[in-house]
Amino acid sequence: MTMIKSAIPELTKQFNEEGYLLLKGVLPADKVTRLNDAIDGILAGEPESLSYNVYNSIDRHEEIASLIDEPSVLPLIIQLLGYNIQLHISHLTVRKPNPEDVRTTTSSFINWHQDGPHPQFPTIDGITSTYYIKVCYILSDMSEPNRGNTKIIPRSHNCVYQPDSQNVRDKLPEEIQICGEPGDVFIFPQNLWHAGAPNHSDHTRRQLFLGYSPIWMRPIDYKTASERLLKDASPIRKQLLGLISDNPFNYYVPDDSMVPLKKLSLE
């Protein structure tokens, strides 16, 4: 955690230039184990499938909810996006080995895209600004390619770019696959071109995405956070769950007392 905090200026520069960060060994092994145990319990209640997409996953288990304000990552997100932010999405993806490319109802792959609404965010000279940032916690061995890894096009967030093919199975000359070990963290903005490759290996992919956006945007997971999530929540977690004021105007212009994350800002 100290290492990441001390490197925030350098990481910010790298993120702005390359459009992504891969941080090694962010979560300790015991935390990864507890998260995987929680995921086992969630999947036990789901229909059997080769592929799972579980949205609003923070409301499914406290261990996952604990990542909302993960102290090793949050100061960096504040530096990248500002302090008037909230949790935008929490999305668990599991891809079991699928060498035969069997189609599933829960999307066993995702073609090349930028995240965002339809129609997409407005552009200026063909370039979309960063509206939200995703933190991907890698929870299985993704140290080799072709294990259902996330593919990205570095630097595609700040230039006019259109892939030659949107089919994730077609290898693009600019693409790289994000390879990491359990406990590593991958961070990228919504405007980076990326894709979720099929899993043709004998390893199961487990990745947990938590996205952050300005608090004036609508979150994807819920209209308002559940009472269970808000109960006993710290002021910082309440802000990240979108609870800062009864007056919607304050989502745009908050008083300092409404945004405790400002205390973690480097500015």
Rank of each mutant, 00 (worst) to 15 (best):
H203Y: 15
D125H: 13
Q162D: 11
P28S: 10
A195G: 13
T104W: 08
I8M: 10
K31M: 12
P47Q: 12
L210M: 11
Y131C: 01
S107W: 11
I176A: 00
I138R: 07
H194E: 03
E174Q: 14
Y83K: 11
A225N: 02
G242M: 10
H157R: 10
V26G: 06
S143N: 09
S213T: 08
H157A: 11
G19P: 12
C136V: 11
L87H: 03
C179H: 06
P122F: 00
V253E: 14
Q114A: 00
G242A: 09
Y222K: 07
K24N: 13
G19D: 05
I85W: 02
S108N: 14
S265Y: 07
G180C: 07
K223V: 07
H113E: 10
R103V: 11
A29Y: 06
V32M: 07
S6E: 14
N250R: 15
R95Q: 15
Q190S: 12
V54N: 00
Q79N: 13
H194T: 11
E227I: 00
L43I: 15
L43G: 05
Y83T: 10
N191D: 00
Q177E: 15
M142W: 02
I78E: 08
L43M: 10
P189I: 00
L76S: 03
L74C: 04
D246T: 12
I4Q: 05
N111M: 07
I77F: 03
T204A: 14
L22H: 11
E10F: 10
Y252W: 15
F188L: 09
C159P: 00
K171N: 13
P173M: 10
K263L: 12
R237W: 04
Y55G: 15
K31W: 01
E227A: 06
G41T: 08
P154F: 05
E17M: 03
L241A: 02
S245Y: 05
L192M: 11
T224W: 05
D246N: 13
S51P: 02
T104L: 12
D202R: 11
R205H: 07
V102L: 09
K13D: 13
Q162T: 13
P189M: 01
P189N: 05
N146K: 14
A225L: 02
P47G: 02
K238C: 10
V160P: 03
H118I: 12
S90T: 15
P97V: 09
K223I: 07
N149I: 04
S72E: 09
F209E: 13
R103G: 06
E175I: 06
S226W: 00
L229P: 04
G45P: 05
T105Y: 11
I187T: 09
P260N: 07
D37W: 01
R34L: 14
L81N: 07
S107K: 14
P260H: 12
P189H: 00
M1G: 14
H61E: 11
I39A: 06
A65S: 15
F109E: 13
L74E: 04
D246K: 15
P254D: 05
D40G: 13
K231C: 01
Q120K: 10
S213N: 08
Y212I: 06
R147Q: 10
G183F: 07
Y131K: 03
L81Q: 12
G45V: 05
F186D: 01
E18F: 03
M217G: 00
R103C: 07
T224L: 10
Y212W: 01
G25S: 15
D246M: 07
L87E: 04
T105G: 13
D246H: 13
D59F: 05
G180E: 06
D37P: 00
K262D: 08
L266T: 14
C159Q: 15
